[in-house]
Design a protein around this nucleic acid. Sequence first.
DNA 1: CTGAAAGCGCTTACAG
DNA 2: CTGAAAGCGCTTACAG
Lengths: 339, 339
Amino acid sequence: MTERVRPARLDDVARAAGVHVSTVSRVINGSADVAVRPETKQRILAAARDLQYRPNAIARGLRLATTGTLGLLVPSLRNPVNSPIVRGAFDRAWERNFVLVLAEDAEESEAAEDAYERLVEEGRIDGLLIQSARLGNPNLDRFARGPVPCVFMDRAHPGSGRNVTMRDQDAGRIAADHLLGLGHRALAHLSGPDELDTVARRRDGFVERSRGEGCDPLVVPAPLSERGGFAGMRTLLQSDAAPTAVFVANINQTLGALAAAREAGVHVPEHVSLLSHDDDPLCEYLETPLTAIRMPLHELGTTAVDVLLEQVEGSPPRDVEVPIAPELVLRRSTAPAPR
Amino acid sequence: MTERVRPARLDDVARAAGVHVSTVSRVINGSADVAVRPETKQRILAAARDLQYRPNAIARGLRLATTGTLGLLVPSLRNPVNSPIVRGAFDRAWERNFVLVLAEDAEESEAAEDAYERLVEEGRIDGLLIQSARLGNPNLDRFARGPVPCVFMDRAHPGSGRNVTMRDQDAGRIAADHLLGLGHRALAHLSGPDELDTVARRRDGFVERSRGEGCDPLVVPAPLSERGGFAGMRTLLQSDAAPTAVFVANINQTLGALAAAREAGVHVPEHVSLLSHDDDPLCEYLETPLTAIRMPLHELGTTAVDVLLEQVEGSPPRDVEVPIAPELVLRRSTAPAPR
DNA sequence: CTGAAAGCGCTTACAG
DNA sequence: CTGAAAGCGCTTACAG
């Protein structure tokens, strides 16, 4: 058998089976009940197999006005926490016969505009997963009103009616409960940038629950990076009312916070408890293994794809919250309040 | 202006400008020198602008037998070290007017087969970046001989003549030089799985240089994960000839190795020096800031795309090594040999 | 049960 | 300088 240089087309199969292309098309992707004589069907299927026929996605896309492709707009290709989300989205999309194209929506530039043109206006995708929403970004309205189905994943665009989120408020509450339960009263929250609604919901849950118990936590926003966590923690440690427990918005920040504590001679958890939002394999291997809140990231990804595909199939958009509860993973960075 | 629900097609522009579609097509993507009357051209351009016309990528793809899409086959969406590579590839592809579709080539499954069918056989891509090559994987031959241009990125497929790599041997040599220069004689290398050629090249460089100086390093292969690093380091520390310096194959492993040392009461760098391959922002924030070797990851990604596009444009495939030298980033996890 | 035709939105020889 | 036609590989009414 010689190596075929050109993939087989419908016409090749038709000729091999001695029928018309339209017949081949029908049996190839007809529901089981297409009216075709069984023997013809067998002949066609055999020919298709022999020739390793696969329908050309581009031609089919043009005909059906459907691409089998979903766009994924991510804020940054760096943040490791994103990978389970992306992976969940990828897995489910692949499983449902869609392919994912990547676009980065860097904060500074007009990358979103760019992505809109390249992906939506050029008709490359059937739907769009947006993970990069920042509150108050006017570009996003364009997506929400555009001709292409889309869904805001993780970071909601309030009022869009297209948000797929996790129980971030609950995560904040769980954090507060855990720390309060250990007897801490001087609480703080190292938060992320205010424009991220996901971060805001976390914070609100934490603050509200703490206040319910008569504590008013210090809240310091900082970039979601090691450096941000370092600076934020330093600020907290130097404040008049230095906290005995801090809830940190993400794992990169937590690494920075640990470094700041170390530098200040503050011990974790003896002097200050640290509770990290987002769990990661590395939590277990740090000097002080990190107590963390594990979020259903993979499920967020799969759910977002499911919800997006509802729209693609014609349903009206809707908000969905992944029902799985955030989970406290107890390790050693939190301890009873010093007294 | 009413919200347009359907994007403009060539025909809409033609009608608006009072010309034939073929003329519009010519001016839209004609090289500056198409023979069109300037005023016609202006009229067309104005109409296109008004209607926000963008050529439909699918239709154009069908006609030109070109998709403007590149596939990216990654081993795992988790490994953070991959992000700069992926990001480099993405940036360059985007810049050169290509879009990237994702495919995961998980080790266990027949994911590669699957990806081949979905991406290559269905005609979705013009070329493929393969970052998941494992030595001895027979599926890969299919890619290398297939009808679609492809390039092995980072992990080479020896003999394919399509490898884009970094100077991994040099990284190993630099590691050995650094450690030997500090007076260490009892060297070890915590390596990755032998089927990864990139890991093998690193190891070879390290071992060869060490032997040149009369040392014969212990080499322990382990998975490229925290857990793998933990187990591997434990093995090393328990061996008869416990090393005073170890070169670790990646950053996840290094975190595990640090934990193992800590558990064994072995101090870094007083008792044992640790040198990590791959630098990352977090290196700076650990208990002992990590001396590391920084690789030109972003450039690997951009170069791989450039080399792939050469093939797409008809040039024969070739091997390329990114010329940028690995760089030793001195921090505190390496120190002179104890005596 | 199967074939012939039209058309998805483009591009590109070929006329004029 | 511009138009009319054919065709990329499919799918789907419409005939027969």
